[in-house]
Design a protein around this nucleic acid. Structure first.
Lengths: 161, 161
DNA sequence: TTTCGACTGGTCAATCTGTGCATTCAGTAG
DNA sequence: CTACTGAATGCACAGATTGACCAGTCGAAA
């Protein structure tokens, strides 16, 4: 849980941006586009990945395109007796739970879940609340995606200061 | 906004899973591990990406590791006069806004934002609400990540039925 | 039986990757 | 002012991968 990360410089940001745009271009092509030596690109990518700034280059699966068109955020209120961990492992067993966080405020846990349809969402929620540790669920359905998940502007912002 | 996606089969799921685990292994290695012909792997990946099931293979930047250790979900209530689109383009200009959705329920928009610290979060929120179209913001801070964003279990679940 | 789509297994030239090395350059400590 | 260090460059090499082909196989549908 160490916070130690990387201070990006401009080259790092451009690297990330280029990769984000065309992930399959390869290190050599990257070095050409950025007008730096190939070794430099390799070194930078190494640094970024080993320090954790870049988690990986996995395929980004779009749930909506594999049959899960409904997305929602669910706030859970849990019983004190059961720890967060127990609830977390319960949630982890449900594939439709894409992520979960403990949060401040009225709820205890916020998680993102997807489902095949609104009816199917009911099934998923039932599966979630069908566990003693969870007392109550409050569901918010996402209607439209105004801004798809992005990090490029952020990494650009991380450089200039 | 077409819902037409792909019905994954087992090979697709394994492909995604393998790529998720070791994204840099290349098509040839994939074909070896899955014990299928190289052309098959190429064809499957083509199908998945062209149909949109896989958005891309971009680098996954971890905000926490580039100096943005605070993550939060903010619910916005917007003025009726201003459309969602206007608010969306305002939000899009703020790098710390990683994603945004219109939602059901009490709020109108839910967005995910990051910041360098709690104090910095205040600055970001001020930037968000410093726009006429937004009437009110309700902030939830994420304390711990119980389940990091994942899709592998989902794609596995998408096959068996 | 014929057709079709998907998969296999193979080849080819072109390209990229990982690696190592010597060199340059700027900033820092002594 | 002089060493030292880290970072970047340019170059070279062998080995591996890629994209593009092609002919053959197989099962399901027409």
């Amino acid at each position: 849980m160490t916070e130690q990360g990387v201070q990006l410089d401009e080259l790092d940001a451009k690297l990330i941006e280029l990769l984000e745009a065309e992930p399959r271009i390869g290190i050599l092509e990257l070095s050409r586009r950025l007008a730096v030596a190939r070794g430099t690109v390799q070194a930078r990518l190494d640094k970024l990945t080993t320090r954790g700034a870049i988690k990986g280059f996995g395929p980004e699966v779009v749930p909506a395109r594999i049959g899960f068109g409904v997305m929602s955020f669910v706030t859970l209120e849990i019983s004190q007796r059961y720890g967060h961990d127990a609830v977390a492992s319960h949630l982890a067993e449900i594939p439709e739970v894409l992520e979960a966080h403990t949060i401040t405020g009225s709820g205890d846990i916020l998680c993102r879940i997807v489902a095949r349809s609104n009816a199917d969402l009911q099934r998923v929620i039932d599966k979630i609340v069908g566990y003693e540790g969870i007392r109550r669920a409050h569901t918010i359905i996402a209607l439209a995606e105004l801004i798809p998940y992005r990090t490029v502007p952020l990494s650009r912002a991380a450089t200039r200061e």
